[in-house]
């Protein structure tokens, strides 16, 4: 550290305390992130199953995934399907409601609270509740549909409907993202809208040329965190469907869990974990790359 006054007692003090106070977080990162990552990379090259000796098998686990393990591809497909459904749907609903709430609505706080409440429901309680809502005979959904004279569904108990049902369920929790969107919308400077209005632009052009570009950083943040989240769906599969029917809801992390903790195949499970890591990294990098083209950052924000 070179300061105007050279190396002073103060800067020595700051260096010593700085390292000391950051140490727990640094040690935590090494012990609970770096070391496990490295360990799982090594384990993924073995055929270790708990209770028997491990031997080195090279990249065989990875080959097995793509050539001899239909369940791997199935779980990847199911998870992708879920992501492609849940992420856009949740983002669109959250954005739309946030737009409406931003239109100088009376009772904003009340609406915001109501829409936020579902995100507070602990995920296990959420799964139990929705299992009852999806109940084909007496659940909320089919009862209502029957009363309206509309066709019913077997929801999570049907191979075709299970993922769409879980997507529907995930949409209930849009409140968190909505609150983030709303805060972003409230931060858009008024004078930009006025500029468009002076140019004769109506609501659509204000949305297209002010709201949307100004919201792209928030949109991007929500997109990335949502995708990382949906790739780790586990509780619904474990509690509601056990991956069924006929593996139609065998999400990736659920498959990883059963491989590791039901079948005790630690080697193969580690390979699955690394494949997930690489996949999510690739998606993130692609998103960040693409963001240069569509995410608008104000010059003033960059320091």
């Amino acid at each position: 550290m070179k300061t105007k006054h050279g190396v002073s007692g103060q800067s020595r003090l700051e260096r010593r305390w700085g390292l000391l106070l950051a140490m727990p977080a640094i040690v935590g990162f090494i012990v609970f992130t770096l070391v496990p990552m490295a360990a799982s990379a090594v384990i993924s090259l073995t055929d270790w199953t708990i209770g028997s000796a491990a031997s080195f098998v090279g990249v065989d686990n990875y080959l097995q995934m793509f050539t001899r393990d239909p369940l791997f591809l199935k779980s990847l497909g199911v998870t992708t399907y879920y992501t492609l459904g849940a992420v856009p749907l949740t983002l669109i609903v959250a954005f739309a409601i946030a737009m409406l709430l931003n239109a100088k609505v009376r009772g904003l706080g009340v609406y915001r609270t109501i829409y936020y409440l579902p995100t507070l429901v602990p995920s296990v309680a959420n799964a139990v509740l929705w299992l009852w809502i999806f109940n084909p005979d007496f659940g909320l959904l089919n009862s209502t549909l029957r009363q309206l004279g509309m066709p019913t569904s077997n929801w999570v108990f049907s191979e075709a409907a299970v993922v769409p049902s879980l997507i529907l369920m995930s949409t209930w929790g849009f409140g968190n993202i909505m609150v983030i969107f709303l805060a972003g919308l409230q931060g858009v400077p008024r004078h930009l809208y006025e500029a468009v209005a002076i140019d004769g632009g109506g609501a659509w052009r204000q949305f297209r040329h002010v709201t949307l570009p100004m919201m792209t950083p928030v949109l991007f943040y929500n997109l990335v965190t949502s995708i990382i989240g949906t790739f780790q769906v586990f509780n619904q599969a474990y509690i509601m469907t056990q991956g069924g029917p006929n593996n139609a809801s065998t999400f990736y992390v659920y498959y990883l869990y059963t491989t590791a903790f039901t079948k005790s195949e630690m080697g193969y499970a580690s390979a699955l974990a690394w494949a997930l890591f690489v996949l999510v990294m690739v998606i993130t990098v692609v998103l960040f790359r693409s963001s240069r083209r569509w995410v608008y950052y104000e010059m003033g924000a960059a320091r």
Binding site: T33, P36, M37, Q232, L256, M266, F277
Partner: peptide, 19 residues
């Protein structure tokens, strides 16, 4: 440290358990 945010926590499941 911040880059750890991008890491799906599920990836650490098996090795952390073994630890």
């Amino acid at each position: 440290l911040l880059s750890g945010l991008m890491l799906p926590q599920a990836v650490l499941l098996v090795p952390t358990f073994l630890m």
